[in-house]
């Protein structure tokens, strides 16, 4: 029948929920980006533990590896590059934006309340032995989700190339272009027979000679 949540289940859930919500709030309210990134890492660890309580052990490991391990390192590097405190941290300009935000937020609350009311009256079923393990998720990914799985690799390749192209410095390119431009001008000058220049030079020489006399 319905497995009731025990006392320890409750304790675990509420501690993890407090860590997740507290970490997220702390992240969003910090002025210093480094503090924000660190508390986001903590939030992701708590979230990974929450995933594990949902029998999603593989996803919990992936969460720690990818989020806390890879994405957050990227964030730290960018914080190091930028390293600026913001002047005006919070801004929501205009009455229209405020009203729109309130209406959208109320609609969001309404939709979520309906989903929670409709979708979760049933008891939690007991997951099967292999639910959420690496083997069964891998089986699913490489059978039913093979095409999405392969397209992830394409997406990541595009993201890598795009990231490099967008963020690289253009200074060297500009310098190379200027050098090429100069080379072109010099080449043109070398190939020209300079009728005007020789005329002007002769005129100058004549004028100079005239001045001497």
């Amino acid at each position: 029948m319905e497995p009731a949540a025990t006392f320890w289940d409750q304790i675990t859930f509420w501690i993890l929920a407090a860590c997740v919500v507290g970490g997220a709030l702390y992240t969003m309210t910090r002025r210093n980006p480094v503090t924000a990134v660190m508390s986001l890492v903590g939030t992701f660890f708590a979230l990974a533990a929450t995933y594990a309580t949902l029998s999603a052990h593989f996803l919990a490991i992936i969460q720690i590896l990818v989020y806390a391990g890879a994405i957050m390192v990227l964030f730290i590097f960018v914080v190091m590059i930028l390293n600026r405190e913001e002047v005006a941290p919070v801004a929501l300009r205009g009455l229209g934006a405020r009203i729109l935000g309130v209406v959208a937020g109320l609609y969001l609350v309404f939709v979520f309340a309906r989903v929670i009311h409709l979708g979760t009256s049933a008891a939690v079923p007991v997951p099967s032995e292999t639910f959420g393990t690496v083997a069964s998720i891998g089986d699913l990914l490489f059978r039913d989700f093979l095409y999405p799985f392969e397209s992830i690799s394409l997406l990541l390749l595009v993201a890598i190339v795009g990231g490099v192209v967008i963020s690289r410095s253009h200074k060297k390119e500009v310098a190379a272009e200027q050098a090429a431009e100069r080379r072109k001008i010099v080449e043109q000058l070398a190939h020209a027979d300079f009728p005007a220049l020789s005329d002007a030079g002769a005129g100058d020489a004549h004028g100079g000679a005239g001045g001497h006399h």
């Binding site: 025990t6 289940d9 859930f13 309580t53 949902l54 052990h57 979760t120 939690v124 997951p127």
Partner: peptide
């Protein structure tokens, strides 16, 4: 390592 908390709790979180 898993809990039997109802799904609605996770949805609210």
């Amino acid at each position: 390592g898993t809990t039997d908390m109802p799904t609605s709790y996770y949805l609210i979180l």
